[in-house]
C-alpha cells in the first residue's frame, strides 16, 4: 500500500483520487415526502488537497461530508475513500472528523479528551501519552493537558477537538464548519493555524463552510453547491500559492476567486 502511494506520487498525472465521488444521489424519506438532499454529485479529491464545500444551508454540503465519512449512506452512485467503501474506511479509521461544536467530554481533561480515540482504538499507554503530547503541540495547546474544557475559550476547545481528530494520524481530515460558532478574529487565527497544520502534516482535508473568504483563503479546490436538490454548481481550482499569509486576502487574485465563488452561489440560487 505504501509502495503504491509513493510510486503514484511520482506520477501525479496517474494519481488515483483519495476520495472518489461519482453520480452520488441521496434521498431522505420523510413524513412530508422524499427530500432530495444530493443529486448526481461528482467529485475527485486527490492526496494532499484542501477542498472546501461552500453553499447556503440546505445545499447538502454537510450531508456530502457525512456520506464520505460513512455516517450517511447514499441512495445511488458510488463513493470510495482510499479505495474502500465509506463504511469500510470508517471502520479502518481512515479519517478524523471535526464537528461544528467541539463536543469535548466535560468529565475529561483536554489530554483525556484527545486520548479518547486512542483508548478506543487500543493504542498502548506510552503511545497514547506520546501522541497526546505531539498533537497538542501541533495545535498550540501544550501545557493545557490537565485543564478541563470549561477552563478553555471556545477557540481553544475547537483546537483541542482538532487535536483529537489528529491523534490517531489518519491521512484524511473531514471538518464540518468547525469555526462556524467562533468570532471573526478567532476564526482568522484558526484559519492560519489550520493552513500551517496542513502544510506540516500533508493531510487531505475536506472542509465545510459558509464563509466565502474562509473557503478561498484555505482551499486548493473550492466546491460550490446549491440547494433543492443539493448539487455541485462549480468546482474552482485555486491558483493561490501554498504559502498564504493573512494579507493575501487583499490581493487581486484572491478577490477574483472570491468573486467567482459568489457568482457560483448566486447562479445556483436563481437556477
Amino acid at each position: 500500500m505504501t509502495d503504491l502511494t509513493t510510486s503514484e506520487a511520482e506520477r501525479p498525472a496517474m494519481q488515483k483520487p483519495v476520495i472518489d465521488v461519482s453520480g452520488v444521489d441521496l434521498t431522505f424519506q420523510t413524513n412530508d415526502g422524499p427530500i432530495h438532499a444530493l443529486k448526481d454529485v461528482n467529485l475527485e479529491i486527490n492526496k494532499g488537497d484542501f477542498v472546501s464545500f461552500i453553499g447556503p444551508s440546505g445545499c447538502g454540503k454537510t450531508t456530502l461530508l457525512r456520506c464520505i465519512a460513512g455516517l450517511e449512506t447514499p441512495t445511488g452512485g458510488t463513493l470510495t475513500v482510499n479505495g474502500l467503501s465509506p463504511n469500510e474506511a470508517r471502520k479502518a479509521r481512515s479519517y478524523g472528523y471535526v464537528f461544528q461544536a467541539a463536543g469535548l467530554y466535560p468529565w475529561r481533561t483536554i489530554g483525556g479528551n484527545v486520548k479518547l480515540p486512542l483508548e478506543i482504538m487500543g493504542f498502548s499507554k506510552e503511545e497514547q501519552i506520546r501522541r497526546v503530547r505531539k498533537v497538542l503541540e501541533l495545535v498550540d495547546l501544550e501545557g493545557f493537558e490537565k485543564k478541563y474544557p470549561w477552563q478553555l475559550s471556545g477557540g481553544m476547545q475547537q483546537r483541542a477537538s482538532i487535536a483529537r481528530a489528529l491523534a490517531f494520524d489518519a491521512d484524511i481530515l473531514l471538518m464540518d464548519e468547525p469555526f462556524g460558532a467562533l468570532d471573526e478574529i478567532v476564526r482568522d487565527h484558526l484559519n492560519e493555524q489550520v493552513l500551517k497544520l496542513w502544510a506540516r502534516t500533508e493531510k487531505t482535508i475536506a472542509f465545510v463552510t459558509h464563509s466565502i473568504p474562509e473557503a478561498v483563503y484555505l482551499s486548493t479546490k473550492i466546491v460550490v453547491m446549491s440547494p433543492r436538490p443539493g448539487r455541485i454548481t462549480d468546482i474552482i481550482e485555486s491558483p493561490l500559492p501554498k504559502e498564504r499569509p493573512l494579507d493575501i486576502r487583499d490581493s487581486a487574485e484572491f478577490i477574483e476567486i472570491a468573486h467567482r465563488v459568489r457568482d457560483g452561489l448566486r447562479a445556483g440560487h436563481e437556477g
Binding site: A92, Y97, G103, I120
Partner: peptide
C-alpha cells in the same frame, strides 16, 4: 447525535460507547 457520531467515526464498539460515553 453528534457525540454518538463522533464515536462512530472511531469505529467504536457498543461496549465502548456505553462505558466511555
Amino acid at each position: 447525535h453528534m457525540q454518538l457520531d463522533l464515536l462512530r467515526t472511531y469505529g467504536a464498539r457498543p461496549n465502548a460507547v456505553f462505558w466511555k460515553l
